[in-house]
Simulated scan of single mutants.
Amino acid sequence: MKIAFSPCPNDTFVFHALVHGLVPGAPKFDVTFADIDITNSLATKPNGPEVLKISYAALPWVLSNYALLPTGGALGRGCGPLVLTKNGLSDTNDPSLLSGRRVAVPSERSTAYLLFRLWAAQNVPGGVGEIVIMPFNEIMPAVRDGLIDAGLVIHEARFTYPSYGLNLLVDLGSWWETDTGLPIPLGAIIAKRSLDLNSLAGWIRSSVEYAWANPEESRGYVLSHSQELAPEVAQAHIDLYVNKFTADLGEAGYGAIEALLGRASDEGLVPKVDWSLLR
């Protein structure tokens, strides 16, 4: 069975047991490591992998062919995307700074970009200027070097951006939580509807539970795919993004997803969602 997820520590931690034959009854998996922009695209292809990690923002485009699984994804509090600028560009965190500016984002259909668009509509007079799609690991150097005016970053950038001499303009996760009182839906695990979805969800949940029970077993696998990260940064990444919602979305998780996609749909940013296909 083909599966695609990112090489980020939270994904390699979650799926280590599943792809290494440590989950009883699970089939063998052929892994593709890919940035979120690529997996969002793969999910739209007729011959896409059976199982993928994508952005929740991309879900409305693929729900007819893929089902959302209730386990394995990234959703939580205090873990949202950040908007960064170069130190010295502004002495304040005034959102109007972005009016007419060039902003890099990690994917056109990323949850980060969707949150950014919802926030900018309320806070950036006249809107931003040019949006530049860029692999997430290239965004902070581009902001630092003045190639773009601001960057929308995800993942371990939350822990490492000060080392690039960058300034936090806004934490979009904090904005979303304050605005809605809900956790932030970031990355979804989806699977083709032709599969045995209950068994697949059970195998992934077992992989999450195995990782929590045996954290040392996945360490080498995690670090081999995040070689640019110090071990303590990789662990902080796991601690933040792998939480109770990773084991099971629950009503709170589904409620957050419905709030995000419902608001985005009302604003015309994503297609209308057939809610009967979500659960």
Rank of each mutant, 00 (worst) to 15 (best):
G72S: 13
L98P: 04
I3N: 07
L172E: 01
R158P: 03
S6C: 13
L52T: 11
L195F: 06
A104N: 05
R263V: 00
A104W: 02
E251A: 10
F136M: 13
V170D: 01
F116Q: 02
R77D: 12
Y221N: 03
Q227M: 14
G78C: 09
A112M: 12
F159W: 08
L197I: 01
Q227W: 13
Q227A: 15
C79D: 07
G21P: 10
T71N: 09
A213S: 11
R102S: 08
S64K: 14
G202S: 09
W175A: 05
V124R: 00
N167R: 13
N198F: 10
S174M: 11
P70K: 11
W275C: 03
L59S: 03
R101K: 05
L269M: 14
M1F: 12
A34H: 13
F13Y: 09
N87M: 08
G220E: 07
L147G: 06
G76C: 09
E156F: 08
A188C: 11
I189L: 11
G76P: 08
P60C: 05
G25M: 05
V31R: 04
A4W: 09
I3T: 10
G73V: 12
R102G: 00
I184G: 03
V51Q: 04
D266L: 05
T160F: 05
G146N: 09
S206P: 13
E209I: 10
D30Q: 15
L115N: 08
P183V: 13
T180G: 12
D91I: 06
V83E: 01
K2R: 15
H225A: 10
P183W: 03
T44A: 13
W61P: 01
F29C: 07
A256L: 03
V222N: 00
L223N: 01
N40L: 02
N87H: 12
S218E: 02
